[in-house]
Amino acid sequence: MIPGSFDYFRPQSVAEASALLAKDDNARVLAGGHSLLPMMKLRMAQPSALIDLGGIGELRQIQFQGGQLHLGAMASQHDLLASDLVSEHAPILKEVALLIADPQVRYLGTIGGNVANGDPGNDMPAVMMALDAAFVLEGQHGRRNVKARAFYTGTYETALLPGEILTAVEIPTQVKGGFAYEKLKRKVGDYATAAAAVILSVKAGVVDACEITLTNLGPTALRAEAAASALIGKPAGHPGAIDAAVAAARAIMTPAHDTRGTPEYRTSAGGSMVRRAIQRALAKA
């Protein structure tokens, strides 16, 4: 449980960080380290250098501008919990952050690290897909935005190019409605056995808009579009519609077989999480 040797840098700006990253193909960005450091201790990851973004103050800011909630990549899970702007513009993030590990981890774990790592077990990717967030990627050759829904290509595989750093998350203004994140886990600190995010709005008793996304039920976070469609246009709380949504969500789940259970179990439980999240979101809508 001792990592190989590596260099450590703590740049003061994104430009400096980018320059360091561009110099060394085997360097990795450190943004909390709760996934990377254990992998290094197991020597499953052996980066030649760590570029710690913790010294770049601007990356920790949370702002609302131009109709978007802007989360600096180094805002910690705890920062999200303490932010009034998050409460106002994306309250589901608080519900999710509280389900991530424990307070010690939330003080150090960051939103950028959580979404950039590409781990299907992380909670924030699915939620960002539900919120239709965009990720700001910066490199030596400029910056670009990639939607969360297009960012994840496989387990630990993302649209990030070599040399790019995910510097911010931008979340568009949400329609007023209900939301819920239901997470089944074995214990505090565990990844989800199955989890589902639901964001929806109801107009005149009918579901008007809906997003359903899934955590740790496939190689990446999943957007369950057919499940959401099954609810849209149907009376809120219609049992047949909810059953159809659950079935549609289960149909796209391909969870791994691990110590959390068999794929069959995790798919079944995943459906239960979808059902409960829909019911709770409807109750709040």
Binding site: T193, S268, A269
Partner: peptide, 11 residues
């Protein structure tokens, strides 16, 4: 008797 085995029993 963890969660998935309880579910398996129920199943």
């Amino acid at each position: 008797h963890d969660y998935w085995r309880n579910w398996e029993a129920a199943k």
